[in-house]
Amino acid sequence: MFAYFFRVIIDLLDRAEHHRRDTYLASAVDIFELERRMRLIESAD
């Protein structure tokens, strides 16, 4: 039972992080800013 709740919490955190990254990328003002942000995210992983 504990493992199930732990997995649910991990899934929720993953979804929140994905949404945060999508929002960050979508707010880029041009293609150059988008590419810079994508490289920044990739280098952090």
Score class of each variant (00 low, 15 high):
Ser27Val: 01
Met1Ser: 14
Arg15Asp: 12
Met1His: 11
Ile10Ser: 06
Asp22Gly: 10
Thr23Cys: 07
Asp30Tyr: 04
Glu42Ser: 01
Ile31Val: 12
Ala3Thr: 09
Asp45Lys: 08
Tyr24Cys: 00
Ile31Pro: 00
Ala16Val: 07
Leu25Asp: 00
Asp11Pro: 01
Ser43Gln: 15
Leu13Phe: 06
Val8Pro: 01
Met38Tyr: 03
Leu34Val: 05
Ala26Lys: 12
Phe6Met: 08
Ala3Lys: 14
Leu25Met: 07
Asp45Trp: 02
Glu17Asn: 09
Arg36Asn: 11
Ile10Asn: 05
Val29Ala: 15
Glu17Lys: 14
His19Met: 06
Leu13Tyr: 05
Arg37Asp: 06
Phe2Pro: 06
Ala28Gln: 02
Leu13Asn: 04
Tyr4Gly: 00
Leu13Val: 06
Ala28Ser: 15
Val8Arg: 10
Glu33Lys: 02
Leu40Ala: 10
Arg39Phe: 07
Asp30Cys: 08
Thr23Phe: 12
Leu12His: 03
Arg7Pro: 01
His18Phe: 14
Ala28Phe: 04
Ser43Asp: 12
Phe6Cys: 08
Tyr24Ala: 05
Ile9Ser: 09
Ser27Lys: 09
Phe2Met: 09
Asp11His: 14
Asp14Gly: 07
Ile31Cys: 03
Ala3Phe: 14
Asp30Arg: 04
Ser43Ile: 02
Leu40Asp: 12
Arg37Glu: 06
Glu17Met: 07
His18Trp: 10
Arg36Lys: 13
Val29Cys: 12
Arg21Val: 08
Phe32Thr: 01
Arg39His: 08
Phe2His: 10
Asp30Met: 05
Asp22Cys: 10
Leu25Pro: 00
Glu42His: 03
Arg20Ala: 12
Leu25Lys: 02
Met1Tyr: 09
Ile9Tyr: 13
Arg39Gly: 01
Phe2Lys: 09
Ala26Ile: 02
Ala26Asp: 10
Arg15Gln: 11
Tyr4Ile: 05
Leu25Asn: 01
Ile31Asp: 15
Val8Asn: 03
Ala44Ile: 04
Ala28Trp: 02
Phe6Gln: 10
Ile31Glu: 15
Phe5Glu: 08
Leu34Arg: 15
Asp22Lys: 15
Glu33Arg: 03
Leu13Ser: 02
Arg7Asp: 07
Asp45Phe: 03
Thr23Gln: 12
Asp45Ile: 06
Ala3Trp: 13
Asp11Trp: 15
Asp14Asn: 13
Arg37Ser: 07
Leu34Phe: 15
Asp22Trp: 13
Ile10Lys: 13
Asp45Glu: 15
Tyr4Glu: 03
